[in-house]
Each structure stands twice: as structure tokens, then as C-alpha cells.
Design a protein around this nucleic acid. Structure first.
Length: 268
DNA sequence: ATGGCGGAAAGATTCCGA
């Protein structure tokens, strides 16, 4: 089973690039982020005609996540639990029924910039960085529950986290940024340390592997990128891991997203 | 350090992302 994650930066803007990539990459399941569309406006027929089941969790203008799957999807759930007042569409999960059932969670973790701190250095309540860290606390809670289920499960998407220096072309440029701050790293490590496997690094230790390049200043041509799109696998899912790859070349095409697809192949 | 680009909604500019 091939499962991909792809922050498309707007479904309308990627109306050609996404189907083109699907036809050649042929993933069984795709977790999409930043569809930037309400559910009613998502062009589901395009993907249904390609054999995909479509489940969306959209909102107006920003954010929005979706799952495309050639295999049946069961028990679809929208929204990350833990804060009923959170109206941002950043989480969707479902069970994919293949040879084995796999629980897949698609996420678009808050960026968190600008970082606003009080005199003591604590994130200011109501600010974007506090929202990011609070969201990661809720993610930690959901992650623990997934482990308790003891079934193959994964959480994948745009984490807006640069895990290590080797995950950025210019790591020093990111010091102090919400994607690279100590509090962000601590929250990331806390989730990993529950017992998740980060799929890409389980298969590849090399630097200069990125999943995002800014549109500005020729970042793609200079390979000035960062690796922020990740797969976290439960132990039962990590046992099924065959490969994890980044489709970098997609970033160099006509009208690209600023992110590129990342995928895993599972023996499921 | 900032936001030079790009997307969306609104509507000839502003907000947002990373």
C-alpha cells in the first residue's frame, strides 16, 4: 500500500499538477493539506473518475485537509480532538481497508509564526506560537491513543517542524523561527518518544533531502529547502515499512506547490 | 531580518504562509 502526503497549496491552483502526479505516482492513499476550499467546492469528481474515494475537511480561504483513497475508507473523523473552539480545518483521519486495516491521520500543523513571547519568554496566550504548541499538545494526546489501539496507524502531513540541522539547507537562518525553536523541537520529540518511527529517517540518513522550497529568491534552483512534511508510524505500522521517498522533482514543474509529495510503501 | 512569491477573497488591496 502506497500512502502519500502532499501540501498542495490550493486545490484550484493545483487542478492540473495534482492529477498529473497521481497518474504517474499511483498512490493508493493521499493525504492532502492546504486544499484552501470549502467541502462543497472541492472538485471531487476529478478524483472519483480516477478511482479515488474522496473525504474532505475544508474551510474557506485557508487550511483544509482531505484524503483520497483507492481503497475503501471507514470511520472517517474530522478535526483534532481536545478543543471544541478550534475552527481551523487541520486534521482528518480514517481507516483504510487493504490487506490489513491501517488507520491514517492527515494533519496540517500550525506554522506558529510570528513567535510572540512575554517578558519571561513564555508564548503569549492567543498568539500564533501558543496556538501551535497547544495544537501539538492535543496531537500528543491523540498520538497516545493511537498507540493504545495497537494497530498499524500513521500520522502524516505538513508538520511545520524542521527536526534537525540536516533538515535545512541553512539551519542558522531558522534559529528563533517557530519551525525550529526549542519549544517546537521539544513538543516534536515528546511525540516521537512515545514510540513513533519517523519513516524518512528510518530509511535515509542523508542531508539535503527537503520537502519545501520557498517561492521566493530562487529557493528551488539553489536547493535552499527544508524538510517539514513527515510520516510518524506506530510500531505496528513501522513493522510494515518498505520504503519512504520524497518526490522532489515535482517541485520543479509548471505551477508547482511550494511543497513536494512524500510517500511510504507499506506491506499492507 | 525580512517577506522579494504565490494563493485566496475581495474588489484595484489585504491577509496568510514558511
Amino acid at each position: 500500500m502506497k500512502i502519500a502526503t502532499f501540501n498542495i497549496n490550493g486545490i484550484k491552483a493545483r487542478i492540473n499538477a495534482l492529477p498529473d502526479w497521481l497518474k504517474e505516482a499511483e498512490p493508493d492513499v493521499v493525504l492532502l493539506q492546504e486544499i484552501k476550499s470549502i467541502d462543497e467546492n472541492f472538485p471531487r469528481e476529478i478524483f472519483e473518475d480516477m478511482g479515488y474515494n474522496v473525504e474532505t475537511h475544508g474551510q474557506k480561504s485557508f487550511n483544509g485537509v482531505a484524503i483520497l483513497s483507492k481503497l475503501p475508507l471507514e470511520d472517517v473523523s474530522r478535526g483534532l480532538p481536545g478543543d471544541d473552539s478550534d475552527e481551523q480545518a487541520r486534521w482528518i483521519e480514517a481507516t483504510v481497508v487493504g490487506e490489513q486495516a491501517v488507520r491514517v491521520c492527515g494533519l496540517y500543523l500550525p506554522n506558529g509564526n510570528p513567535v510572540e513571547l512575554d517578558q519571561e519568554g513564555a508564548p503569549i496566550e492567543g498568539g500564533k506560537y501558543a496556538y501551535k504548541l497547544a495544537w501539538m499538545e492535543r496531537l500528543h494526546t491523540r498520538a497516545k491513543q493511537l498507540l493504545e489501539d495497537e494497530m498499524p496507524a500513521l500520522m502524516a502531513g505538513d508538520y511545520n517542524i524542521i527536526p534537525q540541522p540536516e533538515d535545512a539547507a541553512r539551519p542558522t537562518a531558522w534559529e528563533g523561527d517557530a519551525l525550529y525553536r526549542p519549544e517546537s523541537h521539544e513538543a516534536w520529540r515528546k511525540i516521537l518518544n512515545l514510540g513513533f518511527t519517523e519513516a524518512f529517517r528510518a530509511r535515509n540518513q542523508a542531508p539535503e533531502n527537503y520537502s519545501f522550497w520557498d517561492y521566493q529568491a530562487g529557493a528551488w534552483n539553489r536547493n535552499d529547502g527544508i524538510r517539514i512534511d513527515h510520516f510518524l508510524l506506530t510500531p505496528q505500522c513501522a513493522d510494515l515499512l518498505l520504503e519512504c521517498k520524497i518526490d522532489s522533482e515535482v517541485r520543479g514543474r509548471e505551477k508547482p506547490s511550494d511543497h513536494t509529495p512524500v510517500w511510504v510503501e507499506l506491506a499492507a
